[in-house]
Amino acid sequence: MSDYKVVPGPEAFLPPAAAMMGIELPDPGEGHIEGRIVPEDEAIEHAARKFLGAKVPTIFPGPQILWHWNESAAIKAACVREMAEILPARLIPMADYRPKYPKINPEVEINPNHPNLTIWHNKIDVCLFVGVHCHQANLALKIIRGGTSCYTMAACGMSGHEDACLTIRDVHEDTLRKLTACIKKLKAEGVKSQAEPFEQFRFSREDRKPAYLT
């Protein structure tokens, strides 16, 4: 049994892939917390607590839910929006997979080729990947673990991510609603969000600069 733990970095100049350190992905119905296989519900509750305890909790929605390319994608997008509002958490999209450095604006986007820039710039301490293609998610998760101290979580529609500190797999609308419900329940029980006050940016076509909600 591997005693390797998938904990926040900075881990190494070039951190190893967790899979190469003996970390297996969970089976259906399971998740993992720092590499430890747990029932899905336990991982969901842990994710909710991590989010509530964070100063800069952030959700990174990827192309698979940013685009309304099928009905389920649009529903998941709504679930993610609701989750962000209830937490509260920032939403920063991963709209592009093409490398954008040095043109990237790390305040309003994250990119799988240099995700650390967004983490550093916004001082993100806990994040959730959702709707990002697994290959690009893994690239980003490795780079984040290499050079930042951010706690990474991945809500994956497929097999999950061992390079995240926490993962749940086979995520569909109901899984996202379950996570939101868990956040609500914890809040009702008196767990307070530690999030620092922030303004969610918002883009419009007219104003090419982010307009902040007030």
């Binding site: 892939a17 967790a18 490398p99 799988p112 080729n113 240099h114 290959h135 690239l139 780079i143």
Partner: peptide, 18 residues
């Protein structure tokens, strides 16, 4: 930054083998 992406990409392929 791009070296790191390339290296992580290669590691990801190795991870997938695992």
């Amino acid at each position: 930054i791009s070296y790191m992406t390339q290296a992580s990409w290669q590691l990801e392929v190795r991870a997938a083998i695992e």
